[in-house]
């Protein structure tokens, strides 16, 4: 459990480094790519709603985005956490993905 969380945190840190340096000049439809946001959305969508890794990824992903952005601490954490909870709620209530254990 702890090992998986540490791997997740390290992966998110690498993603945010890539976002702010290697892919800083890239533009998708005129906007810079936000890997953390994409990762958190996909992770929460495909993760079993009973598991909590998606929420942890939102908290730490948001934390790293806050570190490397100019906004106040907590802005991205709250934003990603709301996204994660919303996706989990939608998936739990309305979406059935074959092969993914729900409860």
């Amino acid at each position: 459990m702890l090992k998986n969380i540490l791997i997740l945190i390290f992966g998110l840190y690498i993603l945010v480094l890539f976002q702010t340096s290697l892919f800083a000049d890239f533009r998708a439809f005129g906007f810079p790519p936000n890997f953390i946001l994409v990762f958190v959305i996909l992770f929460n969508f495909f993760e079993s709603p009973a598991k909590k890794f998606g929420l942890i990824s939102a908290i730490f992903g948001g934390f790293f985005l806050d570190v490397f952005s100019a906004s106040f601490f907590g802005f991205h954490i709250l934003f990603l956490l709301v996204c994660a909870v919303f996706i989990k709620f939608i998936v739990r209530r309305y979406v059935r993905i074959p092969g993914i254990q729900k409860y």
Binding site: L17, F18, T20, S21, L22, A24, V67, F68, F73
Partner: peptide, 29 residues
């Protein structure tokens, strides 16, 4: 974490070990 001294401390801490990697990746980018 939003107390001025604290948030600046956290950011400076992360920048201190991230900046060499970021500078390298910036050139590659």
């Amino acid at each position: 974490v939003n107390l001025p001294g604290f948030s600046k401390g956290i950011r400076n801490f992360f920048y201190s070990f991230s900046s060499p990697i970021q500078r390298m990746l910036l050139g590659a980018g």
